[in-house]
Simulated assay, not measured.
Amino acid sequence: MFARNHSGAATGTSTTRVLAVLAAAGAAGAVLAGCTPDQYPTDEKGTTPPVITGDQARPGDEVNAGTTSGGVEELTVTLRNTDGGSIGTATFTTEGEAVNVNLRVAGIAPGSHGVHIHSVGKCEASNGFASAGDHLQVDGHTGKPESGDLASVTVLQNGTGTVTSTTDAFALEQIQGKALVVHEVGDTDGSHRLACGVIAE
């Protein structure tokens, strides 16, 4: 029934095995071709199609548009009275072309307290904070209100007060290292300085 080779072994079995191997190889090739549409297997190194994810910049696009680097983004200050005790804090942040000021105080006399940025970053309690100098003026400004004039803070009967205001009279870089002063109630000439703090990052 089967032809025999010189060794006497049947050749039909060998032929059947060869056909089976070829059929399996063809099926594997079909599977590979079906797994990756429009892509073809290759033995050449470095020819695998690249995988690209996320938004891709087109030629001429500005990368990271709207972001900024460097510069001052926020300044803070702790206010202390002539005894060295903390009576409040203030935070200065940039909002567009303006500066937001958020001031909180506690443990001081009720009423309206003037709040100003002064030109010198020194808060010496021994001279009643006169070391802070006069109100800040920037860019050659000489008129009223002065650059450093901020919204007054109204302190309640429980001794606490909060005020948030916005100003375009200065930039953060122009007040860094200057002094923030809270005046006593009814201080009209700026000589009665209740608390002081140097503005820092």
Rank of each mutant, 00 (worst) to 15 (best):
C123Y: 05
T47K: 15
G111Y: 01
S147K: 11
D134N: 14
A65Y: 08
T188V: 09
T76E: 02
E73D: 11
D83T: 11
I175A: 12
G71R: 08
S112C: 00
H141R: 10
T93A: 13
T78C: 04
G29D: 02
T164Y: 05
H6N: 12
L103M: 09
N100K: 13
P37L: 12
R4G: 09
G177Q: 06
A125W: 05
Q157A: 14
F170Y: 13
T13D: 15
A33K: 12
T36H: 07
G85L: 04
A33P: 01
I117F: 09
A169T: 15
G128L: 01
E73T: 15
T91K: 10
T67V: 10
A151Y: 04
S7V: 10
L103E: 00
T11W: 05
D55W: 05
T78V: 12
Q157W: 01
V77C: 06
G190R: 02
E124I: 14
T154H: 10
H118R: 13
T67A: 10
S131D: 10
V99P: 03
L19V: 15
A171L: 11
I117W: 07
A200L: 02
Q56K: 07
S191P: 00
G96N: 03
D61N: 05
S191D: 03
G140D: 06
N158G: 13
A179I: 07
V77M: 04
A23L: 14
G54Y: 03
V182K: 01
Q56Y: 01
N100L: 15
H113S: 03
D38V: 07
F2W: 07
L103K: 00
F92Y: 12
Q39V: 15
A10K: 09
S152H: 06
G133S: 10
D43M: 09
A33W: 08
V138T: 15
N158S: 08
A33R: 12
V18T: 13
E95G: 08
S7M: 12
Q39G: 07
F92V: 04
A24W: 07
T188S: 15
S191L: 07
V31W: 06
T16I: 08
N100T: 15
G8Y: 06
R58Y: 06
E184N: 12
S112V: 11
G66E: 11
R4A: 10
L172A: 07
Q39Y: 10
G148K: 10
V21Q: 14
P49R: 11
G121V: 05
G70V: 06
T142A: 12
C196P: 01
V181S: 00
P37R: 13
D149F: 06
Q137I: 13
V77Y: 02
S165L: 05
G140L: 09
